[in-house]
Simulated assay, not measured.
Amino acid sequence: MTTRLEVAATPTAPALVLRPWSPADAAGLSALSGDEALRRWTSFAIDDEPSAARWLREQRHGWERGRRFAFAVEEVGPSVGGLPAGHVVLKDVVPGAASAEVGYWTVARARGRGVAPRALDALSDWARATFACDGLIRLVLRHKADNTASCRVAEKCRYALTAVLPAQPPAWPLEGHLHTRHLAERAG
């Protein structure tokens, strides 16, 4: 199974590399604790290096169990460096199941620059190539209904809005959106 994905540069954005998270990422993750948008739109619960190390262990265990495949998203180029620009994840992967879920987030410096849709497209293509033979035919994406940026990313990546989800406090205090992408559709 390929665990490193490369995304070509565009005229306006550097190349991306998607790779599994590693213990060396703990300091960088803990530095994101003050990112209010990340906390508002995601379940990001990292406050310091020990909580970052726990989160990283959870990501590694997901890979080991073959149920959750989390990737750090890195920008590649001479003017880019340091911390990952984001995170994409394929989760709830079950052999023989028709659906799995995707998720993502980006750090402040990467927002609005096409990082999230490019990384999500790469993850979606990887999921198709890796798990279609096990019966995976569709991916779903959930986000809070008032997160218009996530809606735009979903639409750019051909995840159609298929349902409005009722609020489920405390994790989902407001309505959510459910987007679906059928894996027979290739990136365009």
Rank of each mutant, 00 (worst) to 15 (best):
A97C: 11
S22W: 04
H182W: 15
G82K: 05
G66N: 13
I137N: 13
T162M: 04
A15M: 01
N147H: 15
R186L: 12
S33T: 13
E6P: 00
E185Q: 13
R68G: 02
R181N: 10
G77H: 06
A129F: 06
L139R: 08
L183C: 10
V76E: 12
E101I: 06
A52K: 07
R158N: 14
E74D: 14
T148Y: 03
T10E: 07
A24F: 01
S22R: 14
E64D: 15
L16M: 00
G112W: 05
V88E: 00
P20C: 08
E49H: 01
L161W: 12
A184R: 15
L178W: 00
R181F: 08
E155W: 08
E101R: 12
K91L: 05
T148L: 13
G103C: 08
R152N: 09
S124Y: 01
H87V: 00
L32M: 12
E36F: 02
L183P: 08
L56Y: 06
P23A: 06
W172G: 02
H177A: 02
T130Q: 15
F69L: 14
L56K: 09
T12P: 02
A184L: 13
W55D: 03
L174C: 10
K91C: 02
T148Q: 08
T148W: 00
S79M: 12
F71M: 06
C133S: 15
A110Q: 06
H143A: 10
V102T: 13
R67D: 15
H179P: 00
P84R: 02
S99R: 15
D92S: 15
R138A: 14
R19Y: 00
R118M: 01
P166I: 01
S30C: 05
G62D: 09
L38A: 05
D146W: 07
L174D: 15
W41R: 06
D25I: 07
R142M: 03
V93D: 06
Y159F: 15
P170I: 03
D92V: 05
A31R: 10
P166D: 04
L29G: 04
E58S: 12
D121N: 07
L161C: 12
A160T: 10
E185L: 13
E185Y: 05
N147P: 03
A171E: 09
T130K: 08
H179M: 01
D25P: 03
A9M: 08
D92C: 11
D48G: 09
E101K: 10
G34I: 08
L16C: 04
